[in-house]
Amino acid sequence: MFQVVTGGSGSGKSAYAEEQILSMGKARRIYIATMFPFDQESFARIERHRVMRAEKQFDTIECYTGLKEIIIPEHANVLLECMSNLTANEMFQESGAKENTVLAICEGIQALLRQADNLVVVTNEIFSDGIVYEQETRTYQNYLGAMNQYMAGIADTVTEVVYGIPLTIKSGRNV
């Protein structure tokens, strides 16, 4: 099954996504970490998420770009967090796909779906502050919006988490 979890900043979507993986039973749990640690704030954020995963028996695989090359152990439940980092990495990092970002990540999601028993992807709502940003940021919003639409199109469920409350946006089949 493929689940997409979205929401605003600080909405509790990470905790919800982890619960989803835990509820799938004892199969191997893989966490795909995408946040490139470039300053103190990102170290702090990574540490906060690391603590949340402690005791939950996730194996962490770091993937900043090139998701389609990833190799996942068989019969694993995979949590990828998060699409907004991955999109920024592909756009801005030297090894990234640049203008081919959307295609590259779509192929990456397909690679994960071929290998994982279940996949949960966390993404982000960054589209509703009414501010018109400079071109680079608008391109980023455009790419992330395209990724969200692509994933939601092929996902079994899409859930928006609002202050810890899960709202079902799409429920394609019985879960």
């Binding site: 929401g7 605003g8 900043s9 600080g10 909405s11 509790g12 704030e41 709502e125 960054i126 589209f127 509703s128 502050d129 009414g130 501010i131 940003y133 940021t137 980023y140 919003q141 202050y163």
Partner: peptide
């Protein structure tokens, strides 16, 4: 929390804390 990550660290801290 529904916008682009703010440039100012204090604004980031505020929206994170509020969430």
């Amino acid at each position: 929390g529904y916008g682009v990550v703010p440039v100012e660290s204090k604004d980031r801290a505020w929206r994170e804390k509020t969430g």
